[in-house]
């Protein structure tokens, strides 16, 4: 597959002296046609800043960006028509109706009237806003506003969609609705860049993921390979009655036969092991003999969260 976007050594610093923030600190990557590319990273990792530079809203300090062979900072009309953005913040006029917001953008993009009408009907139906199309946006619930925010970026049928945190604060139903729209885009020949600090979102949607922290890309690969990279086995999380000296406990558990890894994250003891169920009794016994009580326990397979913890020693959500 051809590269549709190429980014070389992108940097953006904010502030000076003590207050210097290296928001983006030397990012290079290629994004391929028809893929969903995920940026996964904690708050302040530099995801939005990167995206704003890529789309041409923010000038990089250093670095080169090429989208479909063009520089997005050159204001080419063709390129502008090809790019669609779904910003992190809700971006519409809340004193206009759903429909009026869409019509406004359709006109700004100079879309012929009939085409615009079809497109608006289609998009409104796609995210289930049909009943609300004549309502003022400010009277809509947060979830419905998010959905509008999503389709506003798609009104001109862009080839490349840059989607910055599409689902914060959404209920599961709305979230799935948004995911379905995004997931379907590559089938229509679109390329999507997605940022999120939500590992499940990155995992479910992305063909490839770049894990980013403090302005740097830590790893970049398919979710599957990233998860495989930290080793095999499933995970058990224990929530214990006391939180002191958990590190010692983890260290002790790590020496157990068959346990690949054991560590503490967000006050939980996490153990990775092959065939973890058969070893549970032994582990539980050990914990209790050490003077802890298990309050809660869950078993799951490895996630991108674990990849992040493995790389940084911190959780995605602090």
């Amino acid at each position: 597959m051809a590269n549709i976007i190429e980014v070389r050594n992108l940097k953006k610093y904010f502030g000076k002296g003590d207050k210097l923030v290296k928001a983006v600190d030397g990012i290079s990557l290629e994004i391929r046609e028809n893929e969903i590319f995920g940026f996964l990273g904690p708050n302040g990792a530099g995801k939005t800043t990167s995206l704003r530079m890529i789309i041409g809203l923010l000038r990089p300090d250093v670095g080169k960006i090429t989208i479909m062979g063009q520089d997005p900072h050159k204001n080419g009309k063709e390129l502008k028509r090809a790019l669609g953005i779904i910003p992190q913040s809700l971006t519409f006029y809340d004193d206009l109706t759903v429909e009026e917001n869409l019509w406004f953008l359709a006109k700004i993009y100079d879309i012929p009237k009939n085409e615009a009408r079809e497109r608006i009907d289609f998009l409104i139906a796609r995210v289930g806003l049909t009943e609300k199309r004549k309502h003022l946006v400010r009277t809509l619930s947060g979830g419905l506003q998010r959905r509008l925010n999503l389709i506003l970026g798609l009104i001109h049928d862009p080839t490349i969609i840059l989607c910055d945190e599409p689902t914060p604060g959404l209920d599961p139903q709305s979230r799935v609705a948004v995911w379905e729209v995004l997931k379907d885009l590559p089938n229509q020949g679109k390329t999507v860049i997605l940022t999120t600090h939500f590992m499940e979102e990155a995992d479910r949607l992305s063909d490839r993921v770049a894990i980013i922290d403090q302005g740097k890309i830590l790893v970049l690969d398919t979710p599957k390979k990233l998860k495989a990279s930290i080793g095999e086995g499933d995970l058990v999380e224990f929530s214990l009655n006391r939180r002191d000296n958990l590190d010692d406990l983890a260290k002790a558990l790590k020496t157990f036969n068959g346990i690949e890894d054991a560590y503490v994250s967000s006050g939980l003891i996490i153990i990775r092991a092959l065939d973890v169920v058969s070893r549970l009794t032994r582990i539980l016994n050990f914990i209790e003999t050490q003077g802890w009580e298990v309050e809660n326990m869950s078993i799951r397979s490895t996630s991108l969260e674990d990849v992040f913890i493995n790389l940084t020693g911190r959780a995605l959500r602090n």
Partner: peptide, 18 residues
């Protein structure tokens, strides 16, 4: 500053003149 609505206009293929 916290309103990025205008970004949509900046990103559209329309000049400031519009």
């Amino acid at each position: 500053s916290n309103n990025t609505t205008f970004d949509r206009i900046r990103l559209a293929p329309s000049s400031g003149g519009v």
